[in-house]
Measured scan of single mutants.
Amino acid sequence: LQAFIKTLTGKTFTVEMEPSDTIENLKAKIQDKEGIPPDQQRLIFAGKQLEDGRTLSDYNIQKESTLHLVL
């Protein structure tokens, strides 16, 4: 599935991932794409901060969901 990552500066980019991917995997993909170390990334979806060990499906993240990236 493709999801949108929106930063506080208003920049939006897309990442490809599977519902079974962990938040940790997602942070690694963001690092590959944007060069931001995972330990500096905080991802917010539906008002909740996402925990590394959980999966996208745990948070009911669907295709074309928008996640907010806070540094």
Results as ranks from 00 to 15, higher is better:
L1N: 06
L1T: 07
L1E: 05
Q2C: 10
Q2I: 15
Q2S: 10
Q2V: 15
A3W: 09
F4S: 07
F4R: 13
F4W: 09
I5P: 01
I5L: 03
I5R: 00
I5W: 02
I5M: 02
K6W: 06
K6Y: 07
K6S: 10
T7R: 07
T7S: 07
L8P: 14
T9D: 14
G10C: 05
K11W: 10
K11M: 08
K11E: 09
K11Y: 15
T12Q: 08
T12W: 11
T12H: 08
T12D: 05
F13S: 01
T14W: 12
V15I: 14
V15A: 02
V15W: 02
E16H: 09
E16L: 11
E16F: 13
M17F: 15
M17A: 09
M17V: 15
E18C: 10
E18H: 14
E18T: 10
P19G: 08
P19K: 07
P19Y: 13
P19L: 12
S20I: 05
S20E: 11
S20H: 13
S20A: 09
S20R: 08
S20K: 07
D21Q: 07
D21F: 05
D21M: 11
D21A: 09
T22D: 02
T22K: 07
I23G: 00
I23K: 01
I23N: 00
E24H: 11
E24V: 07
N25M: 15
N25G: 07
N25Q: 14
L26P: 00
L26A: 01
L26Q: 00
L26F: 03
L26N: 00
K27Y: 02
K27E: 00
K27P: 00
A28I: 13
A28E: 09
K29S: 04
K29G: 02
I30K: 00
I30L: 04
I30M: 01
Q31L: 10
Q31Y: 15
D32P: 01
D32Y: 09
K33W: 07
K33E: 07
K33G: 04
K33T: 09
K33L: 15
E34W: 15
E34C: 14
E34I: 15
E34Y: 14
G35T: 02
G35N: 06
G35E: 02
I36G: 01
P37Q: 06
P37C: 06
P37R: 08
P38G: 07
P38E: 06
P38I: 15
P38A: 15
P38C: 07
P38S: 13
D39G: 11
Q40H: 13
Q40E: 10
Q40K: 13
Q41E: 00
Q41L: 05
R42Y: 12
R42F: 12
L43M: 02
L43H: 00
L43S: 00
I44H: 11
I44S: 10
I44R: 05
I44P: 00
I44N: 05
I44L: 11
F45A: 03
A46I: 06
A46E: 15
A46F: 10
G47I: 02
G47S: 04
G47M: 03
K48P: 02
K48E: 13
K48V: 15
Q49V: 15
Q49L: 15
L50Q: 01
L50W: 03
L50R: 00
E51N: 06
E51W: 04
E51V: 06
D52E: 08
D52Y: 05
D52V: 05
G53M: 08
G53A: 10
G53K: 11
G53T: 09
R54K: 14
R54V: 07
R54Q: 09
T55D: 03
T55H: 06
L56F: 07
S57W: 06
S57N: 10
D58N: 03
D58T: 04
D58Q: 05
Y59L: 06
N60F: 07
I61T: 06
I61A: 04
Q62V: 13
Q62G: 14
K63M: 12
K63N: 15
E64Q: 10
S65M: 11
S65E: 09
S65V: 15
T66K: 06
T66A: 07
T66L: 12
T66R: 07
L67V: 12
L67T: 02
L67F: 07
H68P: 02
H68A: 06
H68G: 04
L69N: 00
V70K: 06
V70E: 11
V70Q: 09
V70C: 08
L71W: 08
